[in-house]
């Protein structure tokens, strides 16, 4: 499920184990076949994306396909100035703000839920089933359900009510599942030790549980942000009159046939990479600070 926290666990596990036989000597033929497959996969994964990043730097004559026509930032300027491409700047703004709210709520609620799920409690299987249901339910159907529900109660759909809720119904199950994986490496004896040394419940959470889980919580935050920032199906019918970024991109794919679309792709990818960088940087910072022994 989670890329970041589990891969760290995996790293620890793998270091202590030996590689599969033969771990020395010449490699079997399957290695070369699979290495070829892997290379093919990575090229297919990144190749197309790199193509559109390159194509977004064409000049005014640029089209949707190769060859490159000129080199300029024309389509980026176009993206943020032209009226025909819609309100891209506003959409960015709305999407990022909404994603931040979703992230904060996702981290807090996922953490609390994972705390609850550490033991069995009456109804835990029902909550778990609801969570999985919410994760796999068709997003558009859910979005329309939320829209109809708001309609029925007589509330206007808007980003911070209906869209927020609809997105949380998708980011939270993800977040909780990631927290499960993170929590599985939390030793309950740490909590008991803190209690034994006189810590209250709140002190235990603040001084032991949260700091120990910090890298995992950053990973949950990264999930929350990305899933919200990229959310389309659930937001379509719940965002109200103004578009979020994915909705803006969707309407552009249907109307716009210029490299503006690629420029938008380049810009959102840069933002995604900044977010990934920030998350990884935070995790590295936390680990470093521990290593240095500062407190």
């Amino acid at each position: 499920m989670s890329a970041v926290p589990q891969s760290v666990a995996v790293a620890e596990a793998r270091v202590t184990k030996h590689a599969i036989a033969p771990s020395r000597g010449s490699r079997p033929w399957t290695f070369y076949v699979l290495a070829g497959l892997f290379t093919f996969y990575v090229i297919a994964l990144y190749g197309p994306m790199i193509c559109i990043y390159i194509l977004s730097f064409q000049d005014v004559r640029g089209g949707l396909v190769f060859p490159m026509k000129g080199l300029s930032l024309h389509w980026f300027v176009d993206l943020f100035t032209q009226v025909r491409t819609g309100d891209v700047k506003g959409a960015f703004d709305r999407s990022i703000k909404l994603a931040i709210v979703v992230t904060v709520i996702t981290v807090v609620v996922s953490f609390m839920s994972a705390m609850a799920f550490r033991r069995r409690f009456p109804g835990d299987n029902i909550v778990f089933a609801l969570m999985i249901g919410s994760l796999v339910a068709p997003g558009l159907v859910l979005g329309i359900g939320v829209g109809l529900l708001f309609n029925a109660i007589g509330i206007e759909t808007s980003p911070y009510t209906s869209a927020l809720g609809a997105q949380l119904s998708w980011t939270l199950p993800f977040g909780v599942l990631v927290m499960f994986a993170v929590m599985s490496r939390f030793n309950p004896a740490w909590e008991e030790a803190a209690r034994d040394l006189g810590a209250s419940t709140w002190q235990t959470i603040r001084l032991v549980i949260l700091p120990v889980l910090a890298p995992g919580l950053v990973a949950v935050a990264l999930f929350g942000f990305t899933l919200s920032y990229d959310e389309f199906a659930r937001t379509l019918q719940t965002a109200g009159p103004q578009n979020t970024l994915p909705l803006e991109i969707w309407s552009m794919t249907l109307n716009v046939t210029s490299p503006s679309l690629y420029a938008l792709g380049t810009v959102t990818t840069i933002i995604s990479f900044l977010i990934i960088g920030a998350a990884l940087g935070t995790i590295v910072f936390i680990q470093k600070r521990r290593g240095a022994g500062a407190s």
């Binding site: 030793n187 740490w190 803190a194 034994d196 120990v212 407190s295």
Partner: peptide
């Protein structure tokens, strides 16, 4: 009372 836990349960984030 004070307890010394099995496998010690030292806080991994504190020196």
């Amino acid at each position: 009372t004070a307890m010394m836990f099995q496998s010690y349960a030292l806080f991994p984030h504190l020196n």
